[in-house]
Amino acid sequence: MLDVQDLTVSYGAIRAVRNVSLTVKAGEVVTLIGANGAGKTSIVKALSGLVPKASGRTMFGDTNISSLPAHQVTRLGLVHVPEGRKLVPSMSVEENLMCGAYCRSDKQEIAADLDQVMTRFPRLRERRRQLAGTMSGGERQMLAIGRGLMARPELLILDEPSLGLAPLLVEEVFNIIAGLKQEGKTILLIEQNALEALNSSDRAYVIRVGEVVMSGRSSDLVDDPELRRAYLGVN
């Protein structure tokens, strides 16, 4: 579904991402793990078009999205739930969810999806009229994921969904991801919490200083001694 060849991202003279190649197949959950500042977020920002791709070839389905602007990438079904959630705090929960359906015009189905998202996240239904800015961190993350789902994504990119959350909430987030995986959703997950990420994904890429240094099945990587030492903090 997503096929990235030799992706490079530059900020001025700094090359944050170098010749990264990766693939995500339909129905797969793939994770990018690596230390803070390794370039994971830059990779997904480039994929969704928020930052320009300096070189490389990116195919999404049959479409070459190498130089497609962000809003058109979204319309193709590549939906990016960004780091830090990026909600509109002055809008209500329901309005934020409707932002996700911005590109859709099928009113009835939007209403059905809205209902479905609220069923999935009952907290959101309880607080549908509340302003997003007044919600807790975990609720905001649910809202961000719910908003992403409102776009009916072919591929959902989740950037650091557990960042800044209390341990109990982190667990809840990974439960949500597991649920989505079970429904057959295709997900590209970015996580610092490498152990949890490996446990809930099919395959993984390890990123270091803007490059892919290791890749493979998550279940294999989780046992790799070098990886365990470098990223998982366990021996």
Binding site: A70, K86, M98, Y102, A151
Partner: peptide
């Protein structure tokens, strides 16, 4: 209006929701 409110918060929100900013 919805698009404007997204953009007012952050241009990236608009971009990510498919708004031609």
């Amino acid at each position: 209006g919805l698009a404007m409110r997204m953009i007012a918060e952050d241009h990236d929100i608009g971009n990510l929701m498919g708004v031609p900013v």
